[in-house]
Amino acid sequence: MNRILVVEDQYLVRDAIATLLSLEDDFEISGKCANGQEALDWLGANEAPDIILTDIEMPLVSGLDLAEKLAALSIDSKVVVMTTFSKPGYIKRALALGAKGFVLKEADSEYLVSSLHKIVKGERVISPELALMALDDNNPLSAKESKALKLAADGLKTHDIAQKLFLSEGTVRNYLSEAIAKLDATNRVDAARIAKQKGWL
């Protein structure tokens, strides 16, 4: 029996997915969480499931942040991401974090079930539409620029970003200036907005 944790902030979607998957003989819903933080709390109190099926855009802790924390904690559940057409940049980031699958929210239920069965067998599954979009998606930001911009988007000041990244304030300003220039943005807020729309943050 393959145990699944469903992480999705929309109650009706979360419940529908859990109900659908519970109809499969070899799937068991171990838990349901509304965001990544709830999932981390759940994992702290329960045995890790075989699969963590997670949305990306959620309050408190996003699906990508959850995947990053799971990797840091060496939790070996297979992470499967549900996403939409509009965020191809998420794919490359999640792949780097070890995600085993990307399923479009627009996909039909049979595709979701089939994908999870393949992932259980050790395969990696990416919806063809998302794979094509990812190939065309070129993120101009360096890893350090992305980190600085993400922290700026979270509301941190230059001084706080510098402390968090163990950098000088001048270096942080340079990273943010580079990000603004590369994205043809007017300021750091605009740059963060553009990068988020692309799925790069």
Rank of each mutant, 00 (worst) to 15 (best):
E38Q: 15
E38I: 09
A39S: 06
A39T: 03
A39K: 01
A39G: 03
A39H: 02
L40M: 14
L40R: 01
D41V: 14
D41A: 12
W42K: 06
W42G: 09
W42S: 05
W42M: 05
W42Y: 15
G44W: 08
G44A: 11
G44I: 11
A45S: 14
N46C: 08
N46F: 03
N46W: 03
E47L: 13
E47K: 14
E47W: 01
A48C: 12
A48S: 15
A48M: 06
A48P: 13
A48F: 03
P49E: 02
P49N: 03
D50G: 11
D50C: 04
I51T: 08
I51L: 15
I52L: 05
I52W: 07
I52Y: 06
I52E: 04
I52R: 07
I52A: 05
L53E: 04
T54S: 15
T54M: 10
T54F: 11
T54W: 12
T54E: 12
D55K: 03
D55G: 05
D55T: 09
I56K: 13
I56S: 15
I56W: 13
E57R: 10
E57K: 06
E57V: 04
M58A: 13
M58T: 09
M58D: 10
M58P: 14
M58S: 13
M58N: 12
P59T: 07
P59K: 09
L60H: 07
V61C: 01
V61G: 01
V61E: 01
V61F: 00
V61W: 00
S62H: 12
S62Y: 10
S62N: 14
G63H: 14
G63I: 11
G63Y: 13
G63K: 13
L64P: 12
L64Y: 03
L64Q: 03
L64G: 06
D65E: 15
D65G: 12
D65L: 08
D65M: 11
D65N: 10
D65S: 13
D65P: 02
D65V: 07
L66R: 06
L66S: 08
L66W: 08
L66Q: 11
A67G: 12
E68D: 14
E68C: 11
E68Q: 15
E68G: 11
E68V: 04
E68P: 06
K69L: 12
K69R: 15
K69V: 08
K69P: 03
K69A: 08
L70W: 01
L70I: 07
L70E: 00
L70S: 02
L70V: 03
A71T: 04
A71Q: 14
A72P: 00
A72F: 00
A72R: 05
L73M: 05
L73Q: 07
L73R: 08
L73Y: 01
S74E: 14
S74M: 04
S74D: 15
I75M: 09
I75Q: 08
I75A: 06
